[in-house]
């Protein structure tokens, strides 16, 4: 897992860290049951405050991405992840539906739309 902290971002530190951990979990880079670093070690490595990491862990735990077990540490808990992935998928579907609806409105054919999709997808990947 990579975590990059931007000094110019307007996003608060804890949010930057939280989003990157969440991404890593959603992408499967952090598999279920993986032990996360201790709060102090993680804070030392990222050179942020333990209070920030504690907040990140607390919020991720509330959202069901991780679970902490007293005395053993904090683990990635994938219980909700499938659900989350499904809901993300659902979100994408809604956005696509909207795109299709607009395409039909402007008379863009299915093939054209597919071609557009291919180009945009590749562009995104090479970014």
């Amino acid at each position: 897992m990579n975590i990059l902290i931007s000094n110019v971002s307007d996003k608060p530190l804890y949010q930057q860290i939280k989003e990157q951990i969440k991404d890593a979990i959603l992408k499967g880079e952090l598999a279920e049951g993986v032990l996360l670093p201790s709060i102090r070690n993680f804070a030392n490595d990222l050179q942020v405050s333990v209070l920030t990491i504690r907040r990140v862990y607390d919020e991720l735990e509330q959202e069901g991405f991780i679970a902490s077990q007293a005395g053993r540490g904090t683990f990635v808990s994938a219980g909700n992840i499938e659900l989350l992935r499904d809901s993300k998928r659902h979100l994408v579907e809604i956005q696509l539906q909207e795109a299709i609806h607009n395409a039909k409105l402007f008379g863009i054919s299915k093939d054209e739309l597919n071609a557009m999709m291919d180009i945009l997808y590749e562009e995104e990947e090479t970014k």
Binding site: P12, L13, Y14, A43, V48, S49, V50, L51, T52
Partner: peptide, 20 residues
């Protein structure tokens, strides 16, 4: 640091989480 406390002229000015 995790927390920062600033004192000036014998009074505490603030007590805050560093990252916040």
């Amino acid at each position: 640091a995790d927390m920062i406390i600033l004192i000036n002229d014998g009074q505490i000015v603030f007590e805050e989480e560093k990252d916040a």
